[in-house]
Amino acid sequence: MDLNRCEAYAQCAFQAPDVFAMHGEEALMYEPCPGDERREQVMRAAASCPVQAILVEWPGGPAVPEEAGTGARG
């Protein structure tokens, strides 16, 4: 998780409630190494993040290039 990018939209917690949780309105808690059974949830969370702050790498699977953004924010 790139917590510098995270703006607490909470979309990941909607998409992957077993991996991401909001504590209060702004603090994000997450499981950094979720099991394979959470893979689909994690992919949904990464795709839906409005600021693309979730980087996914799966051992044995194709690393997903979530190199978010294309340059500095203007």
């Binding site: 909470a10 917690a13 909607f14 998409q15 409630p17 949780a21 909001m22 504590h23 209060g24 309105e25």
Partner: peptide, 10 residues
């Protein structure tokens, strides 16, 4: 939604 209704949508 979260934090109070974590699973309502899913």
């Amino acid at each position: 939604g979260p934090p109070d209704s974590l699973r309502r949508v899913s």
